[in-house]
Computed example of a mutant assay.
Amino acid sequence: MFETPLRGDRLIDVLIITKNEEANIGFCLEALAGWTNRIFVVDSGSTDRTREIAESHGAEFIHHDWPGFAKQKNWALDTLELESPWTLIVDADEVITPELRSVLEGIATAPVSQETKTGYFINRLTFFLGRPIRHCGYFPNYHLRFFKTGSGRYEEREVHEHIILKGPVGRITTPMLHDDRRGLEHYIAKHNRYSTLESQALQREINSQK
């Protein structure tokens, strides 16, 4: 299984979840063009040009109502026809650099049965208002995003979910770029929403221990 290359030598399928990402999705998809196999954009109801931009870049656009971060990704992992030996998950506001592409392709081109790692944490460099943040605990910043297809699922968390893999993992120090171009107002609103979800999850945990 997965020993035969797909679409030439493209051995990586990509999953992106979106909602109203027209400011970001084009940059993300341009960096994935020409070397990945299938790109799935799972959208929860965009009202902007996200679908138009995604499809113009050759991505497969699928609507699925929003059940939460972890549940949305698990639905995609369970439902989509991921046919490549490796799966890469990126956010719409992230960009895979040419240097990182080379690292990922180097891993993927080896026979999957000979690769001892089940997945890889990828370093991430975050930009804020156009400037990279290299301090304050923001860098290095590792996220488990590249893994053998079918090897894991996300834990059930409301936000800042993590995928749990079956097997050893490695680290890729070459960073992807995280640059949300939707502006300061969106940034503040997003983190307000995240803090609410985190506090609700904490309260449920406290209540369950009573």
Rank of each mutant, 00 (worst) to 15 (best):
P132V: 11
T126D: 14
L100G: 00
K71W: 04
H143P: 09
E83H: 08
H135Y: 14
I89C: 04
T50W: 08
P98Q: 08
L82M: 05
D43S: 01
T118S: 03
S151V: 04
L125D: 01
L82F: 07
Y142N: 08
H63K: 11
I89W: 01
V42N: 01
N141Q: 14
T109K: 14
N74V: 02
S46A: 00
T126G: 12
A92K: 00
A59I: 12
T50A: 09
V112L: 08
D93Y: 06
L100V: 02
K73Y: 04
G150F: 06
H63Q: 11
E60S: 13
E156Q: 09
G45K: 04
I62D: 06
E155C: 06
F139E: 11
A54D: 11
G68F: 03
G150D: 06
T50R: 07
A110P: 10
H64T: 02
T87S: 01
V103Y: 07
Y154N: 03
T47N: 02
G45M: 05
S151Q: 05
H64I: 03
R145M: 10
R49H: 13
R51I: 06
G45V: 05
S102R: 15
H63G: 07
P111F: 10
W75F: 09
L80N: 06
A110V: 12
C136D: 15
G58Q: 14
S56G: 12
